[in-house]
Design a protein around this nucleic acid. Sequence first.
DNA 1: TGCTAACCGAGACGGTACGTCGGGTCTTAGT
DNA 2: ACTAAGACCCGACGTACCGTCTCGGTTAGCA
Lengths: 212, 212, 212, 212
Amino acid sequence: MQSSTPAGRAGRPRSAAADTAILAATRAALVDLGWSKLTLGDVATRAGVAKTTLYRRWAGKNELVVDAVAELFDELELPDSGSLAADIEGVVLQFATILARPEAASGLMAVVAESTRDAALRERIRTSIVERQKRLVLEGRARAEARGELPPEPDAGQAGRTVDLIFDLVAGAVVHRTLVSAGAADEEWVRDLSRVLLTGLAGTVQEPAAPR
Amino acid sequence: MQSSTPAGRAGRPRSAAADTAILAATRAALVDLGWSKLTLGDVATRAGVAKTTLYRRWAGKNELVVDAVAELFDELELPDSGSLAADIEGVVLQFATILARPEAASGLMAVVAESTRDAALRERIRTSIVERQKRLVLEGRARAEARGELPPEPDAGQAGRTVDLIFDLVAGAVVHRTLVSAGAADEEWVRDLSRVLLTGLAGTVQEPAAPR
Amino acid sequence: MQSSTPAGRAGRPRSAAADTAILAATRAALVDLGWSKLTLGDVATRAGVAKTTLYRRWAGKNELVVDAVAELFDELELPDSGSLAADIEGVVLQFATILARPEAASGLMAVVAESTRDAALRERIRTSIVERQKRLVLEGRARAEARGELPPEPDAGQAGRTVDLIFDLVAGAVVHRTLVSAGAADEEWVRDLSRVLLTGLAGTVQEPAAPR
Amino acid sequence: MQSSTPAGRAGRPRSAAADTAILAATRAALVDLGWSKLTLGDVATRAGVAKTTLYRRWAGKNELVVDAVAELFDELELPDSGSLAADIEGVVLQFATILARPEAASGLMAVVAESTRDAALRERIRTSIVERQKRLVLEGRARAEARGELPPEPDAGQAGRTVDLIFDLVAGAVVHRTLVSAGAADEEWVRDLSRVLLTGLAGTVQEPAAPR
DNA sequence: TGCTAACCGAGACGGTACGTCGGGTCTTAGT
DNA sequence: ACTAAGACCCGACGTACCGTCTCGGTTAGCA
């Protein structure tokens, strides 16, 4: 009979503004209340939105917070400071700065905790946050190769393993420093970290070639 | 946790068995339900204890879980494998093994998340879990010095900084690998990690000395 | 319900079929769900109509159900059985039969309950249902007078009062019997009722005769 | 181990005051809001009680309101006015007065409406309200017999049927008059009603006798 | 035949109340 | 003074309907 309802078309379309408002409200609530006292009702109120609207778009607190936090890490960008070491220090410092913000720390750790029992959530975290930021490592390597600081990586498999290890080392160390050891991830600490990292990788990755 | 009937003594003394039962029940509940679905009522039931009893001894869910999880890490011990590298690999692997258990991962991450907004809880985690296990780093260093693998650290302040950094690196990397990257922290990965670590530290901390 | 294109006329006229479908769907929903679980969304779905269409024509659940139920009572008609007593029994039995239908009972009682706090609704019920059926009492009296069973009523005011009383007695008794006492309003019961009624009225209406 | 927990014994006993407060709050809410806008949350608040306490004792709105309304009718008592006619008028007037109160009308009709789809509720209404008040009819008859106004009823079955009919007639008529016809059930109307009733019953039930 | 206004379906929207669940406290009786 | 049991107040949960509001699309009736 009718043909011009291509797939899902009829009815009032979803408000695009609502998404934005809800994610912002979620971050604000994380700042004020932290994960455990954050309620979806409160988020809805802050966003000027009905609770139902929120549930229509996200399955629950976990999914909502993942999205809200993921946006935070999109701010990260690789500074072009002229040397690999400086580049690393710069981006690690940015990461530490973001993680020092209460909405990032509280939200991220909580969803990671939840994800230990929810594979779908774990996957969502990985794609929305982790994989998404590996771009920084890749960019950094490319830039360093261009500068001649690093030889081109011949083996793609090995390269992937190294990127993963770097990421776990950096992200893990910053998180642990900030949240568990309760120390400041300041410039000095970041310098120590990146020095260990660079030296360690230099001496490891191209094992046979460089006797240093 | 509780005093040993300080002075005033009348009345029935607290059951010592209850403490043990409650902590075990807490871990069991963490395994079955995870942090967020764990309820104190359920823990009490599993422990065969009234909710009242539980609240008389712990302030709430957070404190209870910290204690329950802390016990897990007391299992860690430094194997004497003959070389620093092997020692490190051994203990890191143990750590990864414990962290792979659902009650450890779920519980630990959750209380860390909570601790971002609760200084007292953060302190409790630090003393009950983190500082308590730094013994491993210290033992390892001492043993390595005795073997002649490392020179004695002259500067105590510098030594502390290095221990902290090592701890953040190792613990952070394992946690990130296990929970976020969702990769196995297996022997191969641990070998990569400890190689980077040793090389990095050797080339950094005692700059002039070590040619390796 | 709606005017017949009052003056401004352009545009598509309302579907007449929709009204019919909606009222039928309402009765069907009353049968299946009863008043309290009846939802307008469900009625709309059953009628194959959008919720909007429904709200464009009725103010709410109450008004809709009044109209849906009112139609049921238009089925009533006064049988010509030859005697006043038989006529009364016949019509009362019809009334009882209708009231035994779940859509009538459930819907009618519910709107009456609502009407205790809503004068407009009460008026709507009175005009759409009650007054509309008083025709039966008037017809019955006229027929009885024609037969010579009753003397002509001289005083119009008094006549009105009597009609009202009869109506309250009959309708009230049937409703109470059916819904509250949970007894069947069967032929035997109806015979008892109409005998009491006729006797009582006969001894009463012609007041002046009996000094009491 | 323990034996002296006879059946249901352990734990804090239910507050008796809460029941009273809740029923009173229910009636107050009926007055202010009517049935359909009455919410259990609001009743709980008015009663100074948690919603859970309320749900622990009543299955829902219907059951609660039945109990709340039932208490109202316990106020009814048969006045001893010296004659059967006057006794009837007196008690009918009392009944009408109670029914004129908004909490009675709104609540009673609503639960009757609900009861059309819920046999358990219907039974609860019958026992808690209807049967409970038949005492009035029985008392009235006994008193009239003692006065010699009525001959003793020989047949018990017939007596029951008559009592039921009277009850349906009186209660039904008053309800219909008050709620549907929207007329006042005042002294004059009550006199008309009871006259019809007495006459009708006198001429019917003891067919042969009726001297009057 | 083509305009155009009022209609129609679908479905998202801001709300309100639901009935349930868990947190932590308190009141019993029993050890 | 402890314990188990369980009722208590509180507040959040996720769901269901309410009645309103856009949408895109249809369908008379007048020109």
